[in-house]
């Protein structure tokens, strides 16, 4: 991160570093594996630092997340191109093994939601993560994903419906198995 002078470095620390959690969270949900997310988030931060000179105010979180997203997609293209083509892939994840009774219901639901989210195509998964976990406004999501506002809404709508149906079918299967 050689390119910043002291003043820019300070601005970078103040404006961008508070959003490292957001960067990691988005990468984790796009790549689905924490180790990969850590590697790619770090790379994204490096890129952010290199191009920080071009950043003049505005929404630093959206700016950083845009870089994180692009870095994730290019990483996926190089490493797991198949994932970018799937529409809805149940095969990506084997059914979870039955959860021990000792685990709280909340944990069980967390597991189910995680799997449900991970079976969504990345482009639906990301809008849901940005909206529901990161609390981004539509305008921010549009800026991060370079989608028009209408596409943000329709993607959110499809993401929500797909997740709902993934959850219903998984609990249905579990109910059948229990019988």
């Amino acid at each position: 991160m050689n390119d910043l002078d002291a003043e820019d470095r300070l601005r970078f620390e103040q404006l961008v570093l508070p959003h490292v959690d957001a960067a990691f969270n988005l990468a984790r949900w796009l790549l689905r594996r924490r180790e990969d997310a850590e590697e790619v988030a770090q790379e994204a931060l490096l890129r952010a630092c290199r191009s920080f000179h071009g950043f003049r105010g505005g929404d630093a979180r959206a700016w950083l997340l845009q870089i994180v997203r692009n870095t994730c997609y290019s990483w996926l293209e190089n490493n797991r191109p198949r994932e970018l083509m799937v529409e809805f892939d149940e095969e990506l994840h084997p059914r979870p093994v039955a959860t021990p009774e000792s685990i709280a219901i909340a944990d069980e639901d967390r597991e189910r939601l995680t799997r449900g989210l991970e079976t969504l195509p990345p482009r639906f998964r990301e809008v849901l993560v940005l909206r529901e976990l990161e609390g981004c406004s539509y305008k921010e999501i549009a800026a991060i994903t370079s989608m028009p506002m209408g596409t943000v809404m329709s993607s959110l709508s499809r993401a929500r419906r797909q997740l709902c149906s993934a959850l219903t079918s998984s609990s249905h299967k579990e109910a059948v198995r229990e019988v």
């Binding site: 959690d21 990691f24 984790r28 924490r34 988030a41 639901d109 967390r110 939601l113 989210l117 529901e132």
Partner: peptide, 12 residues
Amino acid sequence: RLQIAQLYESAP
């Protein structure tokens, strides 16, 4: 459900 499950993952 998404909120209760606390799916947000902070940076390690």
